[in-house]
Design a protein around this nucleic acid. Structure first.
Length: 663
RNA sequence: GGCGAAGUAGCUCAGUUGGCUAGAGCAUACGGUUCAUACCCGUAGUGUCGAGGGUUCAAAUCCCCCCUUCGCUACCA
């Protein structure tokens, strides 16, 4: 086989805060299919995946579980690796960010970037989301909560190191413009350019002092390296990068990566920060970053709180590994999110795997056994009808290759199944059971069955990267081996006279949706049981707001004069309506003494305009008017905010007239 | 609010530079067949191609405006 050169492919590394669900595992199945495909296509493939194991969230989870962070991540990493193996993932390297070599290199990289002036020390102020390890500005919050995970944020300020992003921005813009294939799909490229690069990049915070579970900055021990500089660099440290210039031969051979496969949620980090880190290190940029869509359940993101999580191991238990691989690959379009439910799986598997493929293999084998004692022989009795089948068979690889060049894996699978469908049609056209009744047509019958066996083996050989186990099973039943891609472009590779198995195995049994449903009920129950045991340690703070205290960051002390500048009065809401074209704003007419002020507030999520009317509320009256969403606001309604970002208006404890001063 | 994408058969979507009766898969109905996992093959559909204008001999396809949904982003006193 011709060697087409190296191909270095990576997935994002999985965060070890808990067991990943099928939506997370999707990516690695996709990557595995591409890796296996390229390998089979003659590339020298290196496929790296792994786990991202640092951060405050893990530190907290470990503390809750009463174990050390290392013990905690060891456990989760083992689960994740186990799922990879279960899904038949052919990774060449499974990197962990707690690997000594990785940690050492991250420290060196940090030091080097600091020494060359790309990293500098400053202060970080903002609202911090612990689980996401992200600072947010007030304006980035959604309903007062973390825009990523929807959980509470806390004010925080810390000394931190920053990376000078702006220094490299123009080079990156230039690179992106010159390499249209760099960010895929292209719609993502526009988002990055329009929202970040063109308006101007902000410097990125690259260290933390608020927790210890991270790689220490070796020249400033209070700091640990923040997630992105730690996690992203796995792509180079995993193959032997050395910041002092002593990188391994493997690194020199593999870098730059050919494909970083990631979820669409982390495109920004991979297409902006990561390339800039690499520029700063003087390394080449990866060829391509593909931000794949998500696999959703009923168009809903999977999450524990929604109770709709589907785990890969449960799916494999019910359907088998290749069925799961087939489903996630097939159901995931290129650009839009895919959808998975138990019912959809049953439908897809019955139709494509059991009916089209499994049944095809089964009927072909059983006819060979019935009519020729299992011997498949090409007796050369060709008819015109054979030509179309042959043309489709030997053209399958080329069509698949065209799709794979654009990473359209779902479409590639469809091409392969078109061949299997054509085989079924061919059986109908040639009617072997009728040929069998006429002794004079035995040679034709043998040829028909040979053509089928050959076409199936071509299909199975192209299918191998996507469904390795199934392809191998088919080959075994036809008593042959899978062939390389080049050999699928010629019709006739199957050795004439081969004896196929006389005990055909059902490749995919048809599934009864009802039986699957009852299995699912069992699995969900098991999940729930597990969660209740987890929950005893896990959910103390989040679920008991009434007993919770809230501490906010103390503000600077002010003088009485400063306080006295603020004018608070009781206001009565005369009328209230939603601000058109805004998601969160209500516009109220507020009576304060004899005047009426218009005040806009971000409380639509908690109050309807109707229930606002008539309320007596606390108003900051002398705030400089401002326009919100194009509507003038002449003050501020005061609210209390709980840890979840829920708001409650502050009202006088006894009846008070509109305009009464609050002092 | 800014930028972008999308609204086509019950569902998921194709429809290249405007051109013949608008397509595929799944689901549905009917017919055929029996080698096979009640499977496979064939046939049939239904669609004001989001609404309304315009350009053209001709528009799902180009232009204008509007509505809806989604993504990123900003604002949310």
């Amino acid at each position: 086989m011709q060697n087409k050169g190296k191909y270095y492919i990576t997935t994002a590394i999985a965060y070890t805060s808990g067991k990943p669900h099928i939506g997370n595992n999707y990516e690695i199945v996709l990557a595995d299919s591409i890796a296996r495909y390229k390998r089979k296509d003659g590339y020298n493939v290196f496929f790296q995946t792994g786990t991202d194991e640092h951060g405050q969230k893990i530190e907290l989870k470990a503390a809750e579980a009463g174990v050390t962070p290392k013990e905690f991540v060891d456990n989760v990493a083992k689960i994740i690796k186990g799922l990879c193996d279960l899904l038949n993932i052919s990774y060449d390297k499974f990197i962990r960010t707690t690997d000594k070599e990785h940690e050492k290199q991250v420290q060196k990289i940090f030091k080097r970037l600091y020494d060359q002036g790309d990293i500098y020390k400053s202060d970080y102020q903002g609202l911090y989301c612990t689980p996401c390890e992200s600072f947010w500005t007030e304006s980035q919050l959604k309903d007062g909560k973390c825009p990523d995970c929807g959980r509470e944020v806390k004010p925080a300020k810390e000394e931190a190191y920053f990376f000078k992003m702006s220094k490299y921005a123009n080079r990156l813009i230039d690179h992106i413009n010159k390499h249209p294939e760099f960010i895929q799909p292209v719609s993502r490229k526009n988002e990055m350019m329009n929202n970040f690069l063109i308006p101007g990049l902000q410097d990125l915070c690259v260290s933390r002092t608020s927790f210890q579970w991270g790689i220490p900055v070796d020249f400033d021990n209070r700091h640990v390296v923040y997630v992105w500089l730690d996690a992203l660099t796995n792509y180079i440290t995993g193959i032997g990068y050395d910041a002092d210039g002593n990188s391994t031969d493997q690194y020199k051979a593999l870098w730059p990566a050919d494909l970083h496969l990631i979820g669409k949620d982390i495109i920004r980090f991979h297409t902006i920060y990561w390339p800039i880190f690499l520029m700063a290190l003087g390394e080449e940029l990866p060829h391509q970053i593909f931000g794949h869509p998500w696999l959703l359940q009923n168009n809903d993101k999977m999450s524990k709180s929604k109770g709709n999580i589907m785990y890969a191991d449960d799916l494999v238990t019910v359907f088998g590994v290749d069925a799961v691989r087939y489903f996630v690959l097939h159901e995931m379009p290129f650009e839009n999110d895919g959808s998975i439910t138990w019912d959809l799986m049953v439908e897809r598997l019955n139709s494509d795997l059991a009916n089209t493929l499994g049944n095809l293999v089964n009927r072909t084998l059983s006819m060979s056994n019935k009519y020729f004692g299992g011997i498949v022989e090409n007796r050369g009795k060709v008819e015109a009808v054979d030509e179309e089948l042959k043309a489709i068979a030997i053209g399958t690889y080329d069509r698949v290759e065209m799709k794979m060049q654009d990473l359209r894996v779902a479409d590639a699978l469809t091409e392969i199944f078109n061949l299997f469908k054509r085989c079924n049609k061919y059986i109908d056209e040639t009617e072997p059971w009728i040929l069998a009744k006429d002794e004079a047509k035995k040679d034709r019958l043998a040829t028909v069955l040979y053509n089928l066996a050959e076409s199936i083996m071509i299909g199975a050989s192209v299918l191998e990267p996507f469904m390795p186990e199934t392809a191998a099973k088919i080959a075994a039943q036809f008593n042959t081996t899978l062939r390389d891609f080049e050999a699928t472009k010629v019709f006739g590779g199957y050795v004439s006279g081969t004896k196929v198995t006389d005990t055909p195995e059902i490749l995919f049994a048809r599934l009864d949706p009802k039986e699957v449903d009852s299995k699912v009920v069992e699995l969900v129950q098991k999940q729930k049981d597990q969660e209740t045991t987890d929950a005893s340690t896990d959910q103390t703070a989040e679920n008991n707001p009434q007993t919770e205290e809230i501490n906010i960051e103390p503000k600077e002390e002010i003088t009485y004069e400063e306080f006295a500048k603020m004018q608070f009065q009781v206001g009565e809401i005369l009328s209230c309506e939603a601000v058109p074209k805004s998601k969160k704003l209500l516009c109220s007419q507020v009576k304060i003494g004899s005047q009426v002020k218009q005040i806009v507030s971000g409380i639509k999520a908690f109050y309807t305009p109707e229930e606002m009317v008539g309320k007596k509320v606390m108003v900051l009256v002398n705030l400089k008017p401002a326009k919100l969403a194009g509507v003038l606001s002449e003050g501020m309604l005061l609210c209390a905010e709980d840890a979840d970002g829920k708001l409650a208006l502050v009202t006088p404890e006894k009846p008070m007239p509109a305009g009464a001063e609050i002092c």
